[in-house]
Amino acid sequence: MRRSYAVTISTLAKRATEAGGFYALDKPVGITSQRALTIAKRQLGVRKAGHSGTLDPLASGLLVIAVGSWSRLLAFVLGADKVYHAVIRLGLRTDTLDITGAVEGFQPVPSSIGVDEVRAGLERFRGSIDQIPPAFSALKINGVRAYTLARAGQEVVLSQRAVTIHAIELLHLTRSGPFLDAAIRVHCSSGTYIRSLARDLGETLGMGATLFALRRESIGSVTLESAKDPANVEPEDRLPLSMVFPGAAYYTIDGEMLAKARNGHALDCPPTLGASKEMLVLADGVEPEHQRLVGVYAVQDDKLVPLRVVPPEGTR
């Protein structure tokens, strides 16, 4: 029996013309990233939205979200570098590699472990490293989330992944009973797990360690300075294109070329762009910060090839 779907023309039109944009949220501790996104969608009055990468409920800080048809552009944000402020508790081991997990062991941190020892331990992770993700993660094993298997008591074996720690800084150390809390700032590639970094630091220093607190401070060129509480974000808080795509060139089009672009056709590449441009934001309008985004294109030979094209926005 053929299933029928009834969607009114007005509903389709409303969805197609829903204004898009990027926004920066400051996710509070204690809620999921999806919950923060849901709150922001309600506040902005949009149906469709996605975010730039999950923060655990333990963590706070920056989420970049894209609403409306712009959600298809999140792929260009997901791979950006991240900066985190983290507190690692030395002397404690948990199954989730953070403070919310079940304790698997602990030992008092000897007084011989101080700033010099922790800083030297951190330096071992600077640069390109291989990292084993946490068993309690959203990565999939044969189509099943790793955390689902871990919560069921099954053994979880994840392969090492190459990540890059561009910079890692010890901010301060604090004694907390038998433990030692190390506050650090990490500038890392996408895909880096700070929980795994905590575990590995503990092993390097000859003791357990777990993540005590985490705050994401930046994603690419977007920082917490632009972020709003999910419940307070407003349409006028939309991020400028230059912040989301800091290295992109702008090419203003209209008329016949705009119609071709809206239909996903490749365009002739203006000689003034040069051959070095990898990504191009196309917009129709006058000033880049007030243009309506048409799509993101790549320069290939003498053509502009569409990577993502977004439908026209509705009236803002």
Rank of each mutant, 00 (worst) to 15 (best):
S128M: 03
V281D: 04
T210Q: 03
D26F: 13
L171D: 11
A59E: 01
L258H: 08
R199L: 12
G79D: 15
T8W: 02
H265F: 15
R42Y: 05
A152W: 00
R262V: 05
K41A: 04
T32N: 05
D237G: 13
L180G: 06
A183I: 00
Q300L: 10
I219E: 08
E287N: 12
F106M: 12
I88N: 03
G143E: 03
F136I: 08
G220T: 06
W70I: 00
V77R: 01
Q131W: 07
G105W: 07
E225S: 14
Q43R: 15
I194W: 00
H51G: 12
A183M: 00
V115H: 14
L239S: 07
R124N: 12
E169Y: 02
E278A: 09
L55V: 09
Y147S: 03
D302N: 15
G220N: 01
P134A: 09
Q300Y: 05
D268C: 05
Y84E: 02
D284L: 00
V64F: 12
S137D: 05
T272H: 13
V115C: 04
V83N: 01
G61F: 13
P178F: 06
L304N: 04
V310Q: 00
S112F: 06
V156N: 02
C269E: 05
G79C: 09
P133S: 12
R215I: 09
L171N: 10
L211E: 02
L97N: 10
T315M: 07
L73H: 05
E18W: 01
D284I: 00
V286F: 10
D254A: 14
V222R: 00
T100Y: 07
V156L: 08
A66D: 03
R238V: 15
S60F: 11
P246C: 12
K82T: 11
T192M: 06
L44Y: 03
G191M: 08
V222G: 03
L197F: 10
S218C: 05
V67A: 15
D81T: 12
L211H: 07
R161Y: 08
R175Y: 06
A120T: 11
S190W: 03
A249W: 05
I113S: 01
G206H: 09
K140L: 13
R124A: 13
V296C: 13
L62D: 02
S189N: 01
I253L: 04
D26W: 10
R195E: 04
Q300V: 14
H51W: 10
D81V: 12
I88M: 11
G45F: 08
K228T: 08
F179K: 03
K48R: 15
A24G: 07
T11R: 13
E117P: 07
V109L: 06
R47Q: 12
A162V: 13
K41V: 04
G295D: 04
G30L: 08
A24E: 03
L171M: 12
V163T: 02
K82R: 05
G153K: 05
R3H: 11
P270D: 09
L149W: 04
P110A: 10
T252R: 13
T94L: 06
G45Q: 05
D98S: 11
I253C: 06
R199P: 12
G50I: 08
T8E: 13
T192I: 10
R35C: 02
R215A: 06
L214P: 09
L293M: 13
P246T: 07
F76A: 00
R42T: 11
H187M: 00
N263H: 15
E217C: 09
S176L: 10
G20D: 04
G153L: 03
S159R: 14
V310K: 01
V144E: 11
R199N: 14
Q300T: 12
T192K: 00
